[in-house]
Design a binder for these strands. Structure first.
Lengths: 191, 191
DNA sequence: TTCATTTAGTAACAAATGTTATCGTCCGCC
DNA sequence: GGCGGACGATAACATTTGTTACTAAATGAA
């Protein structure tokens, strides 16, 4: 994770160093469950390599609702912050290299961050961006057809479409995998 | 707005006072446009009385994607923060009593807030909550049928259903108003 | 009041999407 | 190399949802 954070000014990066020490590097195979539904999140992960999904079980149907790739933090934020049972599970899709830390270490990091105006601004910005992302994605669910959503995904996150199995993408788009197949073939014929 | 904020500790409330002065009380009729699509947001509103919707135009179809009621802040946050054209319009549904402030006044308020640890925590909490809300709503779009979404709305925000015209609710749920009528009659028959 | 506008319900038909089942391919594992 | 499971495509049929058109009720303005 250290490499990726280097766009942060060196001085503030210095300040962060002690808080980054507790993070441990781990390697896990594909389909590893990092957090089970109903568990309370006690770990925080940073993805160095690989990809991960957040999902939940709905009447037996496994539904993916978010994907995470390299250089991203992953945790069930709500469970983590409030100490409540997680509504979602977190599972690797590919074999992953992760940096992992315990709750109290992350909290120390957050406190440190919030004391420094620059880092605080960075944190705020990060949260705002995440909120905007949800908003946009949400908007697209109201406004667009599944085909439009898929085409947008193809355009905005082509790597996701390449790396993630199609049935995960289908549930992420809110449609059945059969329908996604249909959409793909419709697009292919249209060209 | 002062009444509603009084669950904040008196000491911090004291500190806030000067920043609340610039807010002006205004009264506007129903269907008043507070921010047009494509405009840059320069005002920030606090709803004292009435309700408001955020919406956008999609190929001629007016789509509502969020409702705001008493004791809530309203602005196109993204436009406001980044000085970019707003993707959404903001419009009153009922006659409203609003408190209104300019961008620079709100920024002063935000700076003040971020300097005080308690207020900073409050701000963070607020943003987190908003993010969780989006997340949950988004989840419901992937997981639930329109009927389930409507029933949940009925259960969780009955007042919204009472006060807001049905075609706004329909577009908010991502369905046509005809279909919402069908759902309502289906529910009525089921009982 | 009267009239126009907005809003909601319903029917009929069209289009989109889900479900189930079947098949073929690919890939990891032994 | 063969085997089993995961994955994706396709077809057929069922269900959901949208669209258009019509009607009626509620609402607000003159």
């Amino acid at each position: 994770m250290f490499e990726q954070l280097r766009n942060i000014p060196p001085a503030t990066m210095e300040k962060l160093q002690p808080y980054l020490q507790p993070f441990r590097r781990i390697e896990v195979p594909a389909k590893t469950c990092l957090l089970r539904e109903g568990e309370i999140a006690r770990k925080f992960y940073w993805i160095e390599q690989g990809c991960v999904r957040a999902c939940f079980n709905n009447d037996g149907a496994d539904i993916t609702f978010q994907f995470f790739f390299e250089h991203t933090a992953v945790a069930s934020i709500e469970s983590f912050r409030k100490n409540i049972a997680s509504l979602i599970a977190i599972e690797t899709i590919e074999p992953c290299v992760l940096y992992c830390a315990d709750k109290q270490d992350v909290e120390a990091l957050l406190t440190a961050v919030s004391g420094d105006p620059q880092l605080r601004e960075l944190l705020l910005e990060t949260i705002f961006e995440r909120t905007f992302d949800y908003m946009k994605h949400f908007l697209s669910f109201i406004r667009d057809t599944p085909q439009q959503r898929y085409e947008r995904l193809l355009q905005e996150r082509p790597e996701l479409v390449r790396r993630v199995p199609q049935h995960y993408i289908a549930s992420y788009l809110g449609i059945s995998s059969v329908h996604l197949s249909r959409i793909k073939s419709r697009i292919a014929k249209g060209k």
